[in-house]
């Protein structure tokens, strides 16, 4: 199965619903080790995105992802705005000129997005950030792709690895972002950024079976 423009739009619109449903969860996780705004900010950003898509939806995949990037950068704020903004900006570039996304293209989209987040946030795995969910997800997708998996299996593997990566942030001591100020007190809490990153991959897996 290959994805078209409408499938990508459906993922973006589904993310709006998912982040609205998880607004309190993400904000509560952030309240424990950060500043209690992660869910609120993502909900505001993706609501603005859907409003923008309703008004003026780009005709191709790259345009959709670019609009997503610019809308998130404008409306999310915090660290999540530039981080997810950069994810979608790089994802857009990875999809340049493509009308359909085959399995390798989808993996390339997530690879590029992860690379953007790593560069913008300067975070490495193990520092209790969104990278801890996204990096294992991308690795799992690459493995599954290499094993000849179908798109649905690839994304399923990615979502499962993201979930494990997210849970693995619980015993970690934060070394980036506001949670790092807590030092050892950040241990025992699940990272809100890793959680929203898991939702990003999970929603793709559910939409793009």
């Amino acid at each position: 199965m290959a994805l078209g423009r409408d499938d990508v739009a459906a993922w973006l619109r589904a993310l709006r619903v998912v982040y609205a449903e998880n607004k309190t969860l993400l904000t509560d996780l952030d309240a424990a080790i950060g500043d209690a705004d992660h869910g609120i900010n993502l909900d505001r950003g993706f609501s603005a995105l859907v409003a923008e898509l309703d008004k003026n939806a780009p005709a191709d995949i790259r345009g959709l992802l670019q609009t997503t990037a610019m809308t998130l950068i404008r409306h999310v704020g915090g660290a999540a705005g530039p981080l997810y903004g950069t994810f979608f900006l790089r994802a857009a570039s990875a999809c340049a000129g493509k009308q359909r996304l085959e399995a390798p293209d989808v993996v390339a989209l997530f690879e590029a997005g992860l690379q953007g987040i790593v560069e913008r946030g300067k975070a490495a795995p193990g520092e209790k950030t969104m990278v801890d969910a996204l990096a294992p997800a991308v690795e799992a997708m690459q493995r599954s792709l290499g094993d000849g998996g179908r798109l649905g299996d690839i994304l399923q593997a990615g979502a499962q690895a993201a979930e494990e990566g997210m849970k693995a942030t619980i015993p970690m001591e934060a070394r980036k972002g506001r949670a790092s100020y807590l030092g050892p007190r950040s241990v025992g809490h699940q990272d809100p950024g890793a959680t929203s990153a898991w939702l990003l991959v999970k929603t793709a897996a559910e939409r793009w079976r």
Binding site: D35, R44, I73, R74, H75, G78, G81
Partner: peptide, 11 residues
Amino acid sequence: PGQVFTSPTPD
């Protein structure tokens, strides 16, 4: 000024 306790955006 950003939102409450949230950094402003690049634009």
